[in-house]
Design a protein around this nucleic acid. Structure first.
Length: 1162
RNA sequence: GCCCCGGUGGUGAAAUUGGUAGACACGCAGGACUUAAAAUCCUGUUUACAGCAAUGUAAGUAACGGUUCAACUCCGUUCCGGGGCACCA
């Protein structure tokens, strides 16, 4: 009888299915254990060998825990919403639901072949309405909750409303709250909701019709296709994950994630404690010297300070510029100015006035109204963006901005004036509250200079006296206004340079130090010293205030910058600074530091902050790098938001209206104005029934417009909570019954890749915390332990095809005949070398080459073509198979082999074709990500068919540790297969093919000897340890050792073997099940009890101690296990084999480590 | 530039708290069985030197230095590879 894995695996897979062997109950007296895989996105390419790595690991663990007496939940499902299906739909017109369904079927079939113990009755799919009904429901819970800053947890928004109604908010009284309109109330509440809507900028690519991730934008154009990408402001949904920053940080202390993983999350959250402080801009000549501007300060009167806009006096430069602009105006500006100053509007306007970073055309300071006249040059996109940004910033600091084109002003002045008048009226009736709240509304907002100086954030206020310069981000809004006339040109040039640089370039090329002096000076508030203000690309606008204080003696980057630009360096740390490099120590005693002199830096931090706060020039601040999570996608294939916009207010659907099903689409193109495809579906977004619904609802609203939210949720929506649904997958009343989640509790072991370190893992942690706060579940961390699986990389193979470049700009031209050159001629050669070689080789095949070389051709090289790895044995190409590949595309190719011989196709005649058939063609190789297009994917099916699932499972585990990334290689799978065959032969001999005699049973029921028991118990101990530690590669090796030893000992005893089968069953369940059955055991091996370790078999009487002399291993000695140090010393020193090494020298030291080794020092 | 991970035979890799470097496999070489092949089994396999051989000596875990009786393991510096990044001030 032979090991017929094909029959065996089919048989037991069927049996498990028929008996519902893996169905898990929520009602069991056993302790629960939850093992979870990160569920896959069902891509069209199907499963590849990288997927199962983690799945096998978790499967082994699940089966092991089951044998250990746990009720194990080990489910699987599909993350089936996502972009690829939508892109595929765009290309082929096939509905994502259809292709997704098909892909899932493929995945399931492939998974089943490997023999996983999933409880498929609990399968979930995020794109299934019965699933996303609950995703929507949880979204509504987020929408209807706020983060209470006092008790640091989520609470129902109704509690906030009650509070507002009874006690008011921080900016308004209860009476005022009640007086607010619905819209006003809604806006205020929106600022507290955990899922909220706001405006944010997205990378919009008109040509692709989609919003792109930062990653997908390279050098300002789209990665795919190189189309222009612009920043577009759009209404977006966000999750207020920042509210949970501290708890997400603290939670890391309670979970078993790898240190690297925790570090990544900490870095992402990026908590830093420091202070934000203001550096006044060097006043220079007093702005008040300019007549009229002195009135600015007198304007703090009237109906309340909140109405008075905050504006910047800016630098003296602004005033000079302003003056200049006043002389240099257009006809339209002049005309409007004449109208405005003639007091027809009864409001005092100023012309060309500096506001914040800008000089505006006309402004009424009293009414906070700015009027801008745009010339024809404002037509282009860039200018529009600039204007939008400018408007937004001005809005934020409290101004209303009106823009008119030149033609509007010149063409119909009275219309323009009417509009201004109307706006003025509106402005005047606006409430104080709106003004206050309005400034917080943009998200995320860029930094801006504000107030009377430059705001800098620092974690090291102790170094304040070492500040030698300030650096602004080039995008900083104050740059243009503070730059002096002399520096204007240089700054503009630098800005042009920065514009041409991608973010990544700005980050990585540090050797190249760039920057530009603005000509402006700020003042150190502590010693009054002027500080030059620079701009540099290494300061990014997106973080903090977009401005830093540079301390060259304490920060290496600042140091390099100072050195490069010859900025004098102040040393405040004495000997700690050597003048060669910065020293970021906190242990120095400060020098040259005014009131901080002599203080330890560590202590000075607090002292400095206190002083800064005392002086009112700054305040203590905790900064987080993490931002709120964008939750909108302008796409079709995702969860629709259960939100209806009624008169600009977001109104949630009620629970009983869920699921809001994704409407069927025929087309998947983007909607107008950057909206998602759903916006194209009028009947869905704005059906009359919605209006009806509004009318029936709150009468007070009296809404005239009702339109559904048209964006969809991102991929991480469904995956943020899926682990909960597995616990109670069919519940129609709630997303997961509290009883179920209390029973299963946290995921005990979560297995998946590191690529989700900061995305999925943080989001699901946040959702869990929210659901916990609201009392829906009883734990606030989803995953107790996380096991990271390494990425299986592909090992690509290449063939090299020569190309000839010509001068005619057509590009590279391939040689007339298809020729491939072995890698030895190409790889590792310089361009010149390989050009020589190629020329020599190609000449016989292309007589015109010489001519080309001399006249047209400028370059000969070789293109590397990916070749299917299945056509390559190691690195040697199977030339005959390759000729058949791609329907014989390369059937007539000529191969120049490694030894210089040529392999001709048959079309050259049999003689030539046969002559050099033994010559080898060697492929190039490279380790890359596994991908269909690189022809380097390996489909597990092929291996499972050839060697069986058990072999495949054990081989993937044998490859190396689970955590480690490694290129896939099937070399070695034979060894694992041999091991299983060898195991089989402990039970049955193989059939004898020559005599046709069938194999015989060799196992017996004799009693095992102690030596045999020792083999078993040694294995039990090792396998148990390794399995607990996810050290599966060494476990497989331990099985091999065990089987080798049993075979050597000719031990075929059931008493031993059946226990080995139980140990093996998590790893190779099919063969274990079959042999278990053949031994005549009742029931399934997966339901057996894990064998107990009996230490008595492992006790050794003696131990062979290695003996080192002066640390070098010289000999060994057999000693009783219980030897004392003194006995050992005597034994060692009386053994001649050892003493000969001592050469009669005196023993200085005798080291005895019990059970380990002995070291003699002479 | 910063952060994380890694670098061990021809190959994949092992190596409790620092305690016999290379377990277990692959590959290769030689042998047994066989008419032959497959399958299976046995032997050898870090390198250099010496020896017919058993064996011995020396070196050896990217490189150099340090701590230690003892370092793949801990520390420092450097090099290389992989992954991440939002230069976090």
């Amino acid at each position: 009888m032979e090991y017929n894995f094909r029959e065996i695996e089919k048989k037991w897979q069927q049996k498990w299915k028929d008996t519902n062997a893996y169905k898990v109950s929520n009602d069991s007296p056993k302790p629960s254990f939850y093992v979870l895989d990160m569920f896959p996105y069902p891509s069209g390419a199907g499963l590849h060998v990288g997927h199962p790595l983690g799945y096998i690991a978790s499967d082994i663990f699940s089966r092991y825990k089951r044998l250990k007496g746990f009720n194990v939940l080990h489910p699987m499902g599909f993350d089936s919403f996502g972009l690829p299906a939508e892109q595929y739909a765009l290309e082929t017109g096939q509905h994502p639901a259809v292709t997704t369904e098909k892909n899932i079927e493929t995945f399931k079939a492939q998974l089943d072949k490997i023999g996983f113990c999933y409880d498929w009755s609990r399968e979930i799919r995020t794109s299934d309405p019965s699933y996303y009904k609950w995703t929507q429901s949880i979204f509504l819970k987020l929408f209807n909750s706020y983060f209470c800053n006092t008790c640091k947890q989520a609470k129902p928004i109704t509690e906030l409303i009650e509070k507002y109604q009874s006690r008011g908010g921080s900016n308004f009284t209860a009476e005022q709250w009640k007086a607010f309109s619905d819209k006003e109330q809604a806006d205020i509440l929106m600022k507290r909701r955990l899922a909220f809507s706001s405006f944010g900028e997205v990378n919009w690519c008109e040509a692709l019709g989609t919003v792109l991730a930062n990653d997908e934008v390279v050098n300002g154009v789209s990665e795919r296709g190189g189309h222009p990408v612009i920043k577009k402001k759009m209404r977006q949904w966000y999750l207020r994950i920042t509210a949970y920053a501290d708890r997400l940080l603290q939670g890391l202390e309670t979970v078993q994630f790898s240190d690297a993983m925790k570090e990544m999350q900490r870095n992402w959250i990026g908590k830093s404690e420091g202070c934000e402080m203001l550096f006044p801009l060097n006043p220079g000549p007093s702005p008040r010297g300019e007549k009229g501007d002195g009135e600015i300060e007198a304007k703090t009167d009237l109906k309340g300070a909140a109405l008075v806009p905050k504006y910047s006096v800016s630098s003296p430069m602004s005033y000079e510029l302003a003056k200049q602009n006043r002389k240099d105006y257009t006809d339209a500006e002049d005309k409007l100015w004449q109208e405005l100053r003639s007091s027809k509007l009864d409001v005092k306007f100023r012309r060309q006035h500096p506001i914040d970073a800008y000089i505006v055309d006309f402004v009424s300071l009293q009414d906070a109204l700015i009027i801008e006249a745009d010339g024809g040059y404002h037509e282009n996109e860039e200018q529009k963006l600039y204007d939008e940004n400018r408007t937004r910033i001005l809005n934020e600091i409290g101004f209303t901005v009106l823009r008119f084109s030149n033609s509007e002003i010149l063409g119909n002045t009275s219309l323009v004036l009417n509009k201004i008048r109307e706006t003025l009226n509106n402005v005047k009736t606006q409430t104080i509250k709106e003004k206050e709240q309005g400034s917080e509304f943009s998200h995320p907002s860029p930094p801006r200079g504000e107030g009377l100086g430059l705001r800098c954030y620092t974690t090291r206020p102790d170094t304040i006296f070492g500040v030698d310069f300030l650096v602004l981000a080039p995008e900083h809004t104050l740059v243009s206004s503070i730059t002096t006339a002399e520096q204007k040109h240089a700054i503009n040039e630098y800005l042009t340079y920065v514009k041409s640089r991608s973010d990544r370039e700005r980050q990585s090329e540090v050797k190249q130090i760039t920057g530009c002096f603005t000509g402006a000076y700020a003042t150190n508030p502590f010693n009054g010293e002027p500080i030059p203000v620079w701009i540099a690309e290494y300061v990014l606008a997106g973080y903090g205030t977009g401005a830093i204080m540079a301390v060259p003696c304490g920060d290496q980057r600042d140091f390099a910058f100072a050195k490069h630009f010859n900025i004098p360096i102040t040393n405040i740390i004495g000997d700690y600074f050597n003048g060669e490099e910065a020293n970021s120590t906190k242990d120095a005693h400060l020098q040259n530091s005014g009131f901080l002199d002599g203080m330890l830096m560590k202590d000075a931090i607090t002292v400095a902050i206190n002083k800064i706060e005392e002086l009112g020039i700054g305040k203590r601040k905790v900064n987080y790098r993490m931002r709120d999570a964008g939750f909108s996608r302008q796409r079709y294939w995702g969860e629709p938001f259960p939100i209806i916009w009624e008169d600009e207010m977001a109104v949630p659907l009620s629970e009983n209206e869920l699921p809001l099903e994704l409407p069927h689409a025929e087309k998947y193109g983007p909607g107008p104005e950057g909206e998602g495809p759903l916006a194209n579906m009028e009947e869905w977004t704005s059906s009359p029934s919605l209006l009806h619904r509004v009318e029936k609802g709150d009468e007070k609203m009296g809404a005239k417009v009702a339109r559904r939210e048209t964006s969809t949720m991102p991929g991480y929506a469904g995956s943020s909570w899926y682990f909960l649904r597995y616990m109670d997958p069919n519940n129609t009343q709630t997303f997961c019954d509290r009883k179920a989640s209390d029973y299963w509790n946290q995921v005990d072991v979560y297995v998946g890749g590191t690529e989700h370190a900061v995305g999925h893992l943080l989001y699901s942690r946040m959702w869990t915390k929210v659901l916990f706060d609201l009392g829906y579940i009883g734990f606030d961390e989803p995953f107790k332990k996380l096991v990271n699986q390494g990425m299986i990389q592909g090992s690509s193979r290449f063939v090299y095809r020569p190309i000839v470049a010509t001068h005619d700009n057509i590009g590279y031209e391939q040689t007339k005949k298809t020729i491939f050159i072995s890698s030895g001629y190409i790889v590792g050669k310089t361009i010149n070398e390989s050009q020589e070689i190629l020329h020599k080789i190609l000449e016989p095949f292309n007589p015109t080459l010489n001519k080309i070389k001399d006249s047209e051709a400028s370059f000969i090289s070789a293109n590397a073509l990916h070749v299917d790895v299945s056509l390559v044995d190691g690195v040697e190409l199977n030339i005959e198979e390759f000729r058949k590949w791609k329907n014989g595309e390369f059937a007539d190719a000529i191969f120049i082999c490694e030894n210089g011989e040529v392999n001709y196709p048959l079309s050259f005649g049999e003689e030539l074709g046969a002559r050099f058939s033994k010559a080898k063609y060697i492929c190039g190789s490279e380790v890359e990500k596994m991908s269909k297009s690189k022809y380097n994917t390996v489909n597990p099916d092929v291996l499972v068919d050839k060697y069986g699932a058990d072999t495949f499972r054990m081989y993937e585990m044998f490859l190396g540790s689970v955590e480690q990334s490694k290129p896939w290689d099937t070399k070695g799978i034979e060894g694992v297969h041999r091991f299983l065959k060898k195991l089989w032969r402990l039970f049955y001999t193989d059939a004898n093919p020559s005599t046709n005699a069938p194999g015989k049973q060799v196992w017996n029921t004799e009693t095992a000897t102690d030596a045999e028991q020792k083999i078993l118990h040694k294995t039990i101990k090792k396998i148990e340890q390794d399995t607990e530690n996810f050290s599966y590669n060494t476990a497989v090796s331990a099985f091999m050792v065990c089987v080798n030893e049993l075979a050597d000992a000719k031990c075929y005893k059931k008493e031993i073997l059946e226990n080995v089968l139980i140990l093996l069953s998590p790893y190779a369940p099919h063969i274990a099940e079959e042999l278990w059955y053949l031994l005549g055991n009742e029931g399934l091996v997966i339901d057996a009890t894990y064998p107990a370790l009996n230490e008595k078999y492992l006790v050794e009487a003696t131990k062979e101690y290695p003996v080192s002399i002066n640390g070098k291993m010289r000999s060994s000695i057999n000693l009783p296990t219980e030897t004392t140090e003194e006995d050992a010393r005597q034994a060692v020193l009386s053994t001649e084999a050892i003493t000969k090494w001592l050469e009669g020298k005196e023993v200085k030291k005798f080291i005895f480590v019990k059970g380990r080794m002995i070291n003699v020092v002479v």
